[in-house]
Simulated scan of single mutants.
Amino acid sequence: MPSPLPTHLRQQFHQEYKDILAYWQRYAPDPVNGGFYGRVNYQNQPDPNAEKGIVLNARILWTFSAGLRHTHHDEYRPVADQAFQYIRQYFIDPQYGGVYWSVTAKGEPANATKQLYGQSFALYGLSEYVRATNDPTARTMAQELFRLMVKHAYDPERGGFQEGLARDWSPTDKLVLSKKDNQETKTMNTHLHILEAFTNLYRVWPDKSVDTQIRGMLDAFTNHIVDPKTYRMKLFLNDDWQVRRTAISYGHDIEASWLLPEAADVLKDKALQKKINTLGIKMARAAADGLDSDGGMNYEYDPVTGHRNRERSWWVMAEAMVGFYNAYQLTKEQQFLDKSLQSWEFTKKHLLDTKNGEWFMGVTPEHKVTGNDKISMWKCPYHNSRACLEMLERSEA
């Protein structure tokens, strides 16, 4: 059951949600080459020659589709439509299917490999567009993309998905998120977002094949990716699910702590829901170790080298808000609500750019701003707008 927040906090989330989308409406569209700029700096100055990535464009599609669905405000429809049409025209591979990883500023293929992370976000965005508009073309595209991912990248013997493939879906060593020469052929990050995409697809196409894949992905997390002793995720693995590189990613752990239960919820399987909810709570407890006394969450820790990355990243703080709130909803433990709201207070104080809009990429432990991109291949409106949206939807009485 949702847990109501005080009116003033709901108003804050509502206003921040509107402000984020307004920023992207104003500064993201590329009036010369179409679509959206591949990079905009902290001074809101675009780089008109920057490559355009599928992750950015698919997350814009998701964000404005979700905004249209949630608010029913037609002002969000043009950006959602623009994102859909740009992906359809420039990112979809007309010869082999699937989406390119990136295109040039003018829309020509730049990196044409079929990274499963990129396919996942395209599927996630398309599915949300269908939720918002019921567009039949987008529905067909989403179904076809799902079938291609399963056909070419699914591992029927060991479960899970390959990290990336060449343009024609043949093997490749050109992986974006991992190192093929270290046999990092399956990653937590890609699997988390494949699961996220399949979950959203199931909402608009509750087909048995999607149900089967969601269950298989949850099995992969419970049996291979989440450590049963620490409840932290293993980040880089090989085909046989053996760990190839060690690190603790606090942001991904807290993000997964609510994305896994979300996936179980759409299947309406009470036994599975109970199992995954229990796992999610344990993951949230483990991720809380990444919090510092100022309310910020550290980025990463390597227990082998002892190196701790203490940057407070915009996306980590956004996921902390939702993950700890989800744990509060499941347990009713005040500590989780406190951690969620502390994450928001930290974000308001240190990450919101009150002068030029949107969020900074991150701050140091001393709260000095880092980075210089408001928009980039990875700096997108998805984590922060989604956090506000989740907090609003979850707190509705």
Rank of each mutant, 00 (worst) to 15 (best):
G296K: 09
D294W: 05
H307E: 13
V243D: 04
N200E: 15
F221M: 07
T246E: 15
A256N: 10
W205K: 00
W205I: 01
W205E: 03
L267A: 01
R308N: 12
E184F: 05
I225R: 12
G216Y: 01
L267H: 08
L192Y: 06
A318W: 10
D294K: 04
A264C: 08
G251S: 07
H307C: 04
Y202F: 14
N182R: 15
T305V: 04
R244L: 03
F221H: 06
K234V: 10
E184I: 00
R245M: 05
L195D: 03
P303W: 05
T278F: 10
N309G: 02
K268E: 14
V243A: 09
L260K: 11
R232W: 11
V304L: 14
R232G: 01
A288M: 12
T212F: 11
R245H: 11
I194A: 02
A287K: 09
P261T: 08
P303A: 02
V316M: 01
K186M: 11
T212S: 14
R244P: 03
A318M: 05
N309P: 09
R215Q: 14
A284P: 08
T187I: 08
N298R: 15
M321H: 00
E311A: 07
N223A: 15
Y231K: 10
T190D: 02
D207Q: 13
N182C: 10
K274R: 13
E184N: 00
H252C: 01
L272S: 11
E255K: 00
M297R: 02
I214S: 01
Q183V: 04
A256L: 04
I214T: 02
V210F: 10
K270I: 11
D269T: 05
T187A: 03
V266I: 13
I214K: 02
M297N: 03
F236S: 00
K186G: 06
I194R: 03
N238C: 09
A247P: 03
L291F: 15
W258F: 02
T222M: 14
S257V: 02
L279F: 02
D292Y: 13
D292S: 12
G290L: 07
D240Y: 15
A263V: 00
L272C: 00
S313I: 12
